[in-house]
Lab assay of single mutants.
Amino acid sequence: KHICAICGDRSSGKHYGVYSCEGCKGFFKRTVRKDLTYTCRDNKDCLIDKRQRNRCQYCRYQKCLAMGMKREAVQEE
């Protein structure tokens, strides 16, 4: 069993190059498709875990990228 590289929830498989849960997969897809931009209200180092993953979209998206999620993979779907 794999866990989500972004928030630690149960992974549903590899999405956009990274083991991730449905929540983070959908979040990344929406962000890329709609070309959304986020801002962090703190120091750009918010904790992203299962409980708090919805608290800061900026940091969640940065963690998706840092863990290796690929924007191109969304476009190719």
Rank of each mutant, 00 (worst) to 15 (best):
E22F: 05
C21E: 01
Y38A: 07
D45A: 07
S12T: 15
R53E: 15
T31V: 11
C40T: 01
R71H: 10
K14W: 10
C46Q: 03
K44Q: 08
L47R: 05
C4A: 00
C46A: 04
K44H: 06
G17E: 11
T37D: 15
R41V: 10
A66F: 12
F28Q: 01
E77G: 15
C46S: 03
G8R: 04
K25N: 03
S12G: 15
D9Y: 04
G8C: 09
H2G: 11
R41M: 12
L47P: 08
C24M: 00
K50I: 09
Y58L: 09
S20D: 03
Q75K: 07
G23Q: 04
Y58K: 13
F28G: 01
V74S: 07
G68F: 05
D9M: 02
V74T: 11
L65S: 07
R10W: 08
I3E: 02
Y19N: 04
C40D: 02
Y19L: 08
K44C: 09
A5L: 14
D49I: 15
L65Q: 13
E76V: 11
F27S: 11
T37Q: 15
S11R: 04
C24P: 00
V32A: 10
Y58V: 02
A66W: 07
R33Q: 08
D9A: 05
K70H: 14
T31W: 08
K1T: 02
G8E: 11
V74Q: 10
L65A: 08
S11E: 06
C7A: 00
T39E: 14
A5W: 13
R41P: 15
F28M: 13
G17H: 07
R71P: 11
E77D: 11
R51P: 14
L65Y: 12
S11Y: 05
S12Q: 15
C7T: 00
G17V: 02
H15C: 06
R30G: 06
A66M: 08
E77K: 12
V74F: 12
L65C: 14
S20V: 13
G68A: 03
G26N: 04
A5S: 13
C21K: 00
R10K: 09
A73C: 14
C21G: 00
E76I: 08
Q75F: 08
E22P: 08
E72R: 09
A66D: 13
M69T: 02
R41I: 14
E77A: 15
A5E: 14
C46R: 02
K50E: 06
R41D: 15
Q75C: 13
K1Y: 04
G8T: 12
A73R: 08
Y58T: 02
V18Q: 04
S12K: 15
C24S: 00
Y38C: 02
D9K: 13
I48G: 10
E22Q: 05
Y19K: 08
A5K: 10
M67K: 12
A66S: 12
K29C: 03
C40E: 02
A66Y: 08
R10A: 04
N54Y: 07
A66G: 12
I48F: 05
E76L: 12
L36T: 09
R33S: 06
C7G: 00
C21M: 01
G26P: 02
V32I: 06
R41G: 15
G8W: 05
T39D: 14
C59V: 00
G68R: 03
S12I: 03
R30N: 05
R53M: 06
L36Y: 07
K14P: 11
C56G: 02
R71Y: 11
R30K: 15
A5T: 14
D49W: 15
C24K: 00
F28Y: 04
H15D: 06
L65I: 04
T39A: 10
G8V: 03
E77I: 14
H2V: 04
E72Q: 08
H2S: 12
M69C: 05
M67W: 07
K29I: 04
G17D: 13
I3R: 03
V74G: 09
H15V: 05
V32D: 12
M67E: 10
T31D: 01
E22K: 12
R51C: 07
R51I: 11
Y38R: 05
K1G: 03
K1I: 04
C24G: 00
Y19S: 06
C40R: 01
H2Y: 10
G17A: 05
R10I: 09
K29D: 10
E72L: 07
I3H: 12
R33D: 11
L47Y: 09
E72A: 09
D42N: 13
G23P: 04
C24T: 00
V32S: 06
T39H: 15
T39L: 07
K70Y: 14
D45F: 05
K50N: 15
I48N: 15
I6E: 01
L65V: 13
K70W: 10
Y58W: 13
G23F: 02
G23I: 02
G68I: 01
C40V: 01
R51E: 11
V74A: 08
R71L: 13
G13Y: 12
A73I: 14
V18K: 02
C7W: 00
C59W: 02
L36G: 13
K1E: 04
I6G: 02
R53N: 13
R71G: 11
S11A: 07
G17W: 04
Y16F: 15
I48C: 08
K1C: 03
C4W: 00
Q75M: 14
S11V: 03
C7I: 00
A5G: 08
G13M: 08
G26K: 12
K14L: 05
Q57V: 08
K29N: 13
G23T: 03
G8Y: 08
M69F: 14
C59Y: 02
K44N: 13
C46K: 03
T31F: 06
G26M: 06
I3V: 02
D45I: 04
Q57R: 11
C40A: 01
S11N: 06
S12P: 15
D45K: 15
E22D: 07
M69S: 03
Y16T: 08
Y58F: 09
F28W: 09
K44D: 15
C46W: 02
G8F: 12
D49G: 15
C64Y: 02
K14T: 08
C40K: 01
G26Q: 14
A66V: 13
L65K: 10
C24W: 00
H2D: 15
T31Q: 06
T37M: 04
A73P: 12
C56S: 02
R53P: 13
G26S: 05
G26E: 08
E76C: 13
R41Y: 11
A66T: 11
R51V: 08
G13W: 01
S12A: 14
M69K: 02
K44P: 09
K29A: 14
R41K: 13
Y16M: 11
I6L: 04
N54S: 03
S20L: 14
E22V: 07
E72H: 05
T37I: 10
C4V: 00
N43S: 12
Y38Q: 08
Y16S: 12
M69V: 02
S20Q: 12
K29R: 11
H15P: 08
H15R: 08
D9Q: 13
V74L: 07
